[in-house]
Amino acid sequence: MRVARFMHTCWRAALLPVGLILAAQVAATATQLESDTLASPADIARALAAILTDGSLARATLDTLKAAAAGCALGVGLGSFIGILLGLFRIADDLLDLTIELLRPVPVVALIPVTMMLLGFGAQMEIVIITIGMLWPSVVLARAAVKEVEPRLMEVSRVMQLGFAARLVKIVLPAILPQLFMSLKLAAGYALVVAVTVEITANPQGLGYGIMMAQQALRPAEMFAYLLWIGAVGWLLSLLLNATQRRLFPAHGRGEPR
């Protein structure tokens, strides 16, 4: 019964994408497609297989993921630390709030020219941009999480005369761990987006550069293969992080809007 229901929803979910792909293939075959902008699904699959086997896709994926992971770890780590400090100390919050609010809306892509000038091309510049992009959201989320920690726990820490380090490790961090993970999850998806954007705009490495080059070389099948792959990487990443969140914090993930 359950299997039948599952099959039922699966069938309905799969109808649209499968139908579209089939229609595209039929249209391409019927018109004997020869184009600089379009490619038939079969050609795209062949192109994907080609870049998968010659190793260029693996290298590009690794470059992008490495930059995204490094930037994400640095940005979320630093941002969460600042956010915790702001949440714990009113005075720090009062001091820094205005400056942060003024710096936060600067779009990260505006930093591409600056970092290009200061650091040149390469992984370093990409990581710096991703780090700055992840910094502000992490600050805001961590600060909000600390402010929502049960006030009794803070009273307990005061009564026990815990030092700052002990208070951080024993009270605050365990209490906000679920929110920190959620912040990491959001940042990971966003870091991939920023990484691909930087690569498309400026940095000659990774998946973004690959798709840009495929377009400029007028190889539409390869371009769509890259697009498909980028989508798949993003999708797998979100799937993985969601599964991890459900495993580690089963109570927390449930009520959260998707």
């Binding site: 987006v193 705009t201 697009l227 979100s238």
Partner: peptide, 12 residues
């Protein structure tokens, strides 16, 4: 389609 970075659509 949602996790697809919008900038990846630029070449297309």
């Amino acid at each position: 389609l949602r996790p697809l970075p919008a900038s990846a659509m630029i070449p297309v």
